[in-house]
Design a protein around this nucleic acid. Structure first.
Length: 611
DNA sequence: GCACCTTTGAAGCCG
DNA sequence: CGGCTTCAAAGGTGC
């Protein structure tokens, strides 16, 4: 049964690792040293494998060594092993030692983990998280605590600042320990980007300054009884939030943080309808949150509750279901209807899927891309992020893969009975159906109108329709890319670098890209090919409808890559960069492989509707 | 107000 | 088992 056994992976929150993560923005500088970086990459890669496979459990590990890592799982297992090993070390794995040097990354949590009521916690709730962590992490050393530590590496870093922030102490906190530390400067200063800023991409709904939770409205100074100013001086630089917003600084596990000494991850088999292990001590705020967000049967028993009314980002109440239940009202007998209603109510909480590595990366880097490129369109941003994702080094991607693995693990433990199938058909059936139908229709109708940009190209904008013309953002997107080319503060993305740059490191994602498109040819043809715009903004080919392989700007940007390194495609099955062969400095980025893949996958192109 | 766009990855479904 | 589909985030955009 999956557990954060032995605090596996909980040692990733070490400060030194955080620093390394902070240095991620310096990747671009490293890019210029790709040659050495690649060698380092190889070292890291080998260290990832070797060091992670040194645990006591030699039987399985040795076996894992013998066989090529089957995609991500092997890496995950290795990572888990290494993490658990690290946890067994005297330092509990909190600090990256020489034996753990293979993880040059920090496991900063997805602070907006959907199933973690991050953004929906009251200050009290989070207080219950932070303080025990600070004060008792070392003593507790429970897997959960260590995981929290991993999730919030700054908890240690700024332990001293905790007291200084007691000005945020929530008077409603049941105990002195319930201090709204929020010491994690998760909110970036307007003029200063906090190292963790990329990770804090909370939904605005959780930070709406003007809409603090009702229970947070009256944030009164415990001593004076006077409402405190919205931004206490000691935290204002990083907390440009209203009191309520400050209180909503999400903590990935805030609502789950158990009381001291309580079992952290009791494995339950109750299914996700009882997603909150009853053995898990829930503080008042948590309980109130649960009681306010879930039907009574979903909320673990607890007393002295108060409602927060704060939405849970991970558990969404699908209105569709509610509507459907209402529509059924008239047609069903009262008893049956009540039964069905109850069942539906049970199904109401929409537990979202855990974020995968790329999603975590996107959440982290979106803000940065937006800031760099002044882009707001998520579609365009995602394209950039996709390119950057491929440009990431193996260890950088591994960081997110590992984080995603932990997210899944945690999700699985939080919602033992949950299955992706629950969301696959249930919650958004209507939307899904429409989407599917539309996609099918598009697939069947090759002449279906697509984006004007793709149809006419950028040089024929006069032919664009009004909406698409309005989408001059496409142009702006290109220009924005130009403006964003190789920003010094970039996260190391090679996207902005000249696509043909041979210095671009080979990335695991790049390897996976061809595979993905092999399995999903349609997506390839449907893609406007951001790379084209990015790499050859003014290239006629890039501007032409990216339907023909020859017209794909990818080939322009990364031609020859595939030929030069066809094995890159094979390595696509190694998302963690555990390439079958040593990475070569001549390796080209993913999109190059993609280009080659495109060439090698003519059918996929044929099956794609012309735009 | 909902769906789309766009990305990658995980997982479910289906033949 | 391979291939396809859906969903996860996000915010502008279209209808």
């Amino acid at each position: 049964m999956p557990q954060l056994n032995g605090g596996g992976g909980d040692d990733l929150g070490a400060n030194d690792e955080m620093i390394s993560f902070k240095d991620e923005g310096e990747q671009e500088e490293k890019i210029s040293e790709i040659s050495s970086a690649e060698r380092d990459l190889a070292d890291v890669k080998s260290s990832l494998v070797n060091e992670s496979e040194t645990p006591q459990n030699s039987s399985s590990d040795s076996e894992a060594e013998r066989r090529p890592p089957p995609r991500s799982e092997s890496f995950r297992d290795k990572s888990r092993d290494s993490l658990e090993d690290a946890a067994k070390r005297p330092d509990g794995g909190l600090f990256k030692g020489p034996a753990y040097g293979g993880y040059p990354f920090i496991m900063i949590p997805d602070l907006t983990s959907p199933y973690l009521p991050n953004g929906s916690l009251s200050p009290t709730a989070r207080t219950c998280v932070n303080v025990p962590l600070d004060l008792h992490l070392a003593s507790c050393c429970s897997p959960f605590m260590q995981y929290l530590q991993m999730k919030w590496p700054l908890l240690d870093v700024q332990a001293g600042s905790l007291q200084s922030r007691q000005g945020l102490k929530d008077t409603r906190s049941p105990s002195p320990a319930h201090i709204v530390s929020n010491k994690v400067p998760v909110v970036q200063h307007p003029h200063h980007v906090h190292p963790l800023t990329p990770l804090i991409t909370y939904s605005n709904e959780h930070f709406t300054p003007g809409n603090p939770p009702p229970h947070l409205q009256a944030d009164v100074d415990p001593k004076t009884g006077i409402p405190r100013p919205p931004h206490p001086p000691d935290i204002s630089p990083y907390y440009p939030l209203s009191p309520g917003a400050v209180g909503q600084i999400p903590h990935p596990l805030g609502w789950l943080v158990p009381q001291q000494g309580q079992p952290v991850y009791p494995i339950t088999t109750g299914g996700f309808r009882h997603p909150y292990p009853t053995a898990l001590t829930v503080n008042a705020s948590m309980s109130s949150f649960l009681s306010s967000r879930f039907p009574p049967h979903m909320v673990p028993p607890h007393h002295s509750l108060h409602t927060t009314g704060i939405p849970h980002p991970a558990i969404v109440t699908p209105t569709v279901k509610q509507e459907s239940s209402q529509s059924d009202m008239g047609s069903l007998h009262s008893s049956k209807h009540q039964d069905s209603k109850k069942e539906e109510e049970k199904k109401k909480p929409h537990i979202k899927k855990p974020l995968n590595a790329f999603m975590l990366y996107m959440k982290e880097m979106r803000a940065k891309v937006v800031a760099e490129c002044t882009l707001k369109e998520s579609a365009a941003i995602n394209q950039i992020l996709g390119r950057r994702w491929h440009a990431l080094s193996r260890e950088e991607q591994a960081k997110y893969y590992e984080l995603a693995r932990k997210e899944r693990q945690l999700h699985m433990q939080l919602y033992p009975g949950w299955s992706a199938r629950d969301n696959y058909v249930g919650a958004y059936g209507k939307k899904k159906k429409r989407k599917r139908e539309k996609q099918q229709g598009e697939a069947n109708d090759l002449s279906a109108p697509k984006k004007c940009r793709a149809r006419f190209g950028l040089d024929q904008q006069n032919n664009w329709c009004g909406p698409c013309r309005r989408k001059k953002k496409c142009i702006r997107y290109i220009q924005g890319e130009g403006s964003c080319v190789s920003p010094p503060s970039s996260d190391g993305s090679l996207l902005d670098s000249p696509p043909s740059s041979p210095a671009m490191p080979d990335s695991p994602a790049s390897d996976s890209k061809p595979q993905t498109e092999q399995t999903q040819p349609l997506s390839l043809s449907l893609k406007p090919d951001p790379l084209a715009r990015i790499c050859v903004p003014h290239s006629p080919l890039a501007q032409s409808p990216a339907r023909k392989p020859s017209a794909l700007p990818v080939t322009i940007c990364q031609n020859g890559a595939e030929h030069a390194h066809p094995h890159n495609v094979l390595q696509s099955s190694l998302p963690y960069g555990l390439s079958l062969t040593q990475p070569s400095t001549s390796f080209l980025p993913s999109h190059r492989s993609l280009a080659g893949t495109t060439q090698l996958q003519p059918l996929s192109l044929v099956t794609k509707p012309l735009e």
